[in-house]
Amino acid sequence: MKALVSVKRVVDYNVRVQVKSDGSGVITEGVKHSMNPFDEIAMEEAVRLKEKGKLTEIVAITIGGAKNEETLRSALAFGADRAIHIKEEGDVQPLTAARAFAAALKKEGAQVFFAGKQAIDDDANQTGQMVAALLDIAQATFASKVELDGGKAVVTREVDAGLETLEVDLPAVITTDLRLNEPRYLKLPDIMKAKKKPIETVTFADLGVEKGAALTISKTSAPPKRSKGIMVKTVDELVSALKSKGLV
């Protein structure tokens, strides 16, 4: 059974993100990027399933410019067998990404599409669901436990009220949540071996993908700064301060 795993290159989770001065977005130049942590969890799950003999092939896929190859190399070092690089520069929105992934999934004939539940850059949380909708296949999102058996997947998902267990027919889309697993450390020799694994480069045109209706970002701004507090000496002073601000 083949799995397609999408991995996105995002600003590293350790970076203190800064908004561009013109408010058009955040600064990504000269900033450390790495694989979206939720996608690492998806990768890890796929590799574990392969180690258990439930999957036979793992194909990592990403959309983006030349630098995204680094992310694919990480995925290959993780344990993907090969990778597909959909080489497109510029902003890619969830619907466009979903169309591309759906086309690739069809082309590859993969039975499972793994993705992180969301990427930590735009936090859209849409792509996985859209892929399922476009292909009219089952979806199990926010997975905290995944079992593959025959033509079915049993997925425990984290929902507001607790845990929900779904049994879905394959092919299916599974998006991974934080508590599914803890991704492994990359082994140094695997990083070297990853250089020899194949990466296929395609474009939206090759996949017959049209860009989805564009959302426009009108403004990006940093969260408001917390203003400095004042110290009061007595309860009376506190009450009168609150009253003067109309808070009590």
Partner: peptide
């Protein structure tokens, strides 16, 4: 910068709980 950033900003890691 990436290398430096990797080490910095630990509170963010804690908040997201991404890497226990």
């Amino acid at each position: 910068l990436r290398v430096l950033n990797r080490v910095a900003g630990l509170p963010v890691v804690d908040r997201l709980g991404l890497r226990p």
